[in-house]
Structures are given as structure tokens and as C-alpha cells.
Simulated assay, not measured.
Amino acid sequence: MTLALNKLNIQRASSLLHVPTEQLDLQINIDVLSNDELSDLKQSLPAGLKMLVQPLRFNVQWVAGDQTLKLDQEELKNVTRVIHLGTTDLDPQTATVLGFNEETRTYSYVPAYFVQNKGQWEVRIRDMQYSTYVIASNEQIDTSDNDSSINSIQYMQNKQLLALNQFKTDEPITRGEVAQLLVSALGANGIASKNTSFRDVTEEQSYAATAAHLGFVKGYADGTFRADRQVTREELASMVYRAIQYAGGVSVANSSAVISYLDHDSISPWATAHVQALTSLNLLQDTFGTTFEPKKAVTTDEALMILVRTLRSIEYVN
């Protein structure tokens, strides 16, 4: 487990536990599960998945005497969990990591990147909510054409990021759907943000407040978010760029890259640098043809293909 110590909020812990900072300890636990817990996990594992290695439970908390305090989600953003898998037979395209919520007894997608070094596999997990992780394989994933729109949808479904039949191809995607996807894809579901200036966001649309809090999305001048409004191509480019920025991946992007689209002059000034950056990262290649048509609505399959490319570029999936 790797922690960015300068990102830990020791003053928050001191205030909430009512002790001086010098009396605080940071406790890190990495535990295997009991046989009963392991049996429970196997029984509730989603259909089609096979457990690859022993699940592990990670826990980081502040300790003062008999008092404990969990790290908040912003602190957990800067915690990387690495699990060494050894020489196990693993395909990073079919493998996935799921977080197990012990309260709801359910599994959810967790951003994870598999790396092989000298024949040894390891997985790097980025998550801000769960502590118990199950590494599983789904042999139903078709890896023959990972960059097609259809396979992008299937890939995300089998990684447990999309619910089955959640989206249909060739249909416009909405601002709310993109915001929800970005929050889930970056493992930020655990960040609750009730404070929002959007006057049209309901409690069921809390992902919009989270996305705004994290800087993925912006609202309109009248204070609305308009979750049901279709996303334009230039809006999607800006949302994706901000998500990459949040994940710390914009340092390799070139915001002055040449845009080869024939209609590049029609891109709004506020989106030009974002389109340039995504172009430099090869995230838009062959998606929109020779013209960008910045005001045109984005289809679901176009958006998901770009999202899968984005997640790979920042090493949140393989």
C-alpha cells in the first residue's frame, strides 16, 4: 500500500478525535479473509466470474488510544493498493477487480491496472470506497477487437462498470449519463457531495453533484445542470479532459496539438484546448471522421469507445 503522506489530513483527524496531532498514529492493515467470509464472497460473486487469487481486505485509519477514524475519500484518492499475483495464468483483458461492500453484500467495479514484470503479475488498485477486493476473471470477454464500439460496451459490462443492457448503440448519450459514467469509471462513487449549485438536480442524481465537485462537469449560467440534455462532441471532450486532469494524466497531453478536422474553426474557444489535448493522446482517432461537428450530439457507442481509450491511457483499466 502506497500513501501520499503530504495528502493526508492529520488536522481533520486531530479535530474529529479531539486529540493533539502528536498523539495520532496511522494504522495500516492488510488481511486475508476467514473461511466463512471467503465462502460468502464466492456465493455472491456475479455470474460468469471466477476468483483468481485469495481476496484481501485493506484498511487504513487514524488511531488515538481506543479511538479510530477512517480516512476520508479525498485522502483515499491518494492511496494505491498493489496486490502481487505471482505467476498465475492471467489475461489482463478478461481479469477484473471488484470491491465488496460488506454492508450491502454487493460487488462493484473498481479501477485496476494489471502489470507483468519478469513473469510476475501484479494489480494496482485505485479506489475511494471499498476495502475488500476480489480479483476475478471473465472468460466471456471478446478481446479480438478491443477498440470497436460494440466491444467497448461489452468490455465495460464484463468489467462490471456497466449494467447489462444499460445502454444501446447509436442512441444519443445524456449529460447525466456521462457524469455518472465518469464518476463510476474513476472509482469516485464513494465521494458524496450534497453541496451543489444545480437547482435542477434531484437526490437520485447525486452523481451530478459529485462530478461537479470533482471538476468533471460544469453547469449553465442559469444554475441548471440539465442531466437529460444530449451531450455535444465538444462538451464530451471537455468532460473527458477534466476527468483525465483529475486522475493526474494531463501532463502527457499537448493542448497545442494540431487539430486535423476540416471544421476545427467551428469548435468553441472554451473547448479547443481540450480537443487538442485529447487529439494528442489519440483518444479521438477514427471516431468522428474528417469533420468534428462540435455541436453534434454524441452517441452512446462513440462516448463509450472514447471512455475506454481514456481509462487505458491513464492506466485505470488494461
Score class of each variant (00 low, 15 high):
residue 3 L to P: 01
residue 7 K to H: 11
residue 9 N to F: 01
residue 11 Q to C: 07
residue 15 S to P: 01
residue 16 L to C: 03
residue 16 L to R: 08
residue 17 L to V: 06
residue 19 V to E: 07
residue 20 P to E: 11
residue 20 P to V: 09
residue 22 E to Q: 12
residue 23 Q to T: 11
residue 25 D to L: 13
residue 27 Q to R: 14
residue 29 N to I: 08
residue 34 S to R: 11
residue 36 D to F: 06
residue 38 L to A: 04
residue 40 D to K: 10
residue 54 Q to A: 14
residue 57 R to C: 03
residue 58 F to E: 04
residue 63 V to R: 09
residue 66 D to I: 09
residue 70 K to T: 09
residue 74 E to A: 12
residue 76 L to G: 01
residue 78 N to W: 13
residue 79 V to S: 02
residue 80 T to A: 13
residue 83 I to S: 03
residue 83 I to F: 12
residue 84 H to V: 14
residue 87 T to L: 07
residue 88 T to Y: 10
residue 90 L to F: 07
residue 93 Q to L: 12
residue 94 T to K: 14
residue 97 V to Q: 00
residue 97 V to W: 00
residue 101 N to Y: 03
residue 101 N to H: 12
residue 105 R to M: 13
residue 105 R to A: 14
residue 107 Y to S: 04
residue 111 P to Q: 06
residue 112 A to K: 01
residue 118 K to S: 15
residue 121 W to C: 01
residue 123 V to G: 02
residue 127 D to Y: 00
residue 132 T to F: 01
residue 133 Y to Q: 04
residue 139 E to W: 03
residue 142 D to V: 05
residue 142 D to T: 03
residue 142 D to E: 09
residue 143 T to G: 12
residue 144 S to E: 13
residue 144 S to Q: 12
residue 146 N to H: 05
residue 149 S to R: 15
residue 149 S to C: 08
residue 152 S to D: 02
residue 154 Q to P: 01
residue 158 N to S: 10
residue 161 L to T: 05
residue 161 L to D: 03
residue 163 A to Q: 14
residue 165 N to P: 08
residue 168 K to Q: 15
residue 168 K to Y: 10
residue 177 E to Y: 05
residue 179 A to R: 00
residue 182 L to H: 02
residue 182 L to Y: 01
residue 183 V to E: 02
residue 184 S to R: 14
residue 185 A to P: 03
residue 185 A to L: 09
residue 188 A to T: 07
residue 189 N to A: 04
residue 190 G to E: 06
residue 191 I to N: 01
residue 193 S to W: 03
residue 194 K to H: 08
residue 196 T to D: 08
residue 200 D to E: 10
residue 205 Q to M: 14
residue 206 S to W: 10
residue 210 T to E: 12
residue 211 A to W: 01
residue 211 A to K: 02
residue 212 A to N: 07
residue 216 F to D: 00
residue 216 F to P: 00
residue 219 G to Y: 05
residue 225 F to C: 02
residue 228 D to C: 04
residue 230 Q to A: 11
residue 233 R to I: 05
residue 238 S to H: 03
residue 238 S to Q: 15
residue 238 S to D: 08
residue 243 A to C: 09
residue 245 Q to E: 15
residue 245 Q to R: 13
residue 246 Y to C: 04
residue 248 G to H: 11
residue 251 S to N: 14
residue 252 V to H: 10
residue 254 N to H: 11
residue 254 N to E: 09
residue 258 V to A: 11
residue 260 S to M: 09
residue 264 H to E: 14
residue 267 I to N: 00
residue 272 T to R: 08
residue 273 A to I: 03
residue 274 H to R: 14
residue 275 V to I: 12
residue 276 Q to A: 15
residue 279 T to Y: 00
residue 284 L to A: 05
residue 291 T to F: 04
residue 302 E to C: 08
residue 302 E to D: 07
residue 307 L to C: 07
residue 308 V to A: 02
residue 310 T to C: 05
